[in-house]
């Protein structure tokens, strides 16, 4: 199972690098999202994959009984997903604004804030 996940992380990163090499800002953003998913999967795998039950504590005891899944990486991934969600939502709005006010999503044409190109 670990190998399978490792391979899928690799595929995700490869796909994201391919997308990020594009000049189109939206494609770049999609690549970024793929890569952040790969990072989240990395954390998930780092917590080891076990065939455990959900780590819920039954009534009357202090700790979960039997083999349970490692809850910490799941909490970390959840936090990372939430933060990533916020950042990418902002980036998406920014991309939309960029398209509206600059009229293009070609990254090589986005140089309003740069000095003029030497002729």
């Amino acid at each position: 199972m670990e190998q399978l996940l490792a391979i899928s992380i690799g595929v995700l990163v490869a796909g994201s690098v391919y997308l990020m090499l594009a000049r189109d800002l939206l494609r770049f953003l999609f690549g970024l999202i793929l890569m952040s998913n790969a990072a989240n999967l990395t954390i998930f795998v780092a917590g080891r994959l076990t065939p455990g039950a959900p780590p819920l504590v039954p009534d009357g005891v202090d700790a979960p009984v039997g083999l349970v899944a490692n809850a910490l990486p799941q909490a970390l991934v959840l936090t990372a997903i939430v933060i990533g969600f916020g950042l990418f939502a902002f980036a998406l709005v920014l991309t939309l604004r960029a398209y509206q006010s600059l009229g293009t999503l070609e990254t090589s044409d986005m140089r309003i804030a740069e000095p003029d190109e030497p002729k």
Binding site: L87, A91, L94, A98, S101, L102, T107, M110, I112, A113
Partner: peptide
């Protein structure tokens, strides 16, 4: 417009 342009570079590289 300048801010949006600068913002795009700042946001993407920091992400």
């Amino acid at each position: 417009r300048e801010q949006i342009d600068g913002g795009v570079k700042y946001v993407t590289l920091n992400l």
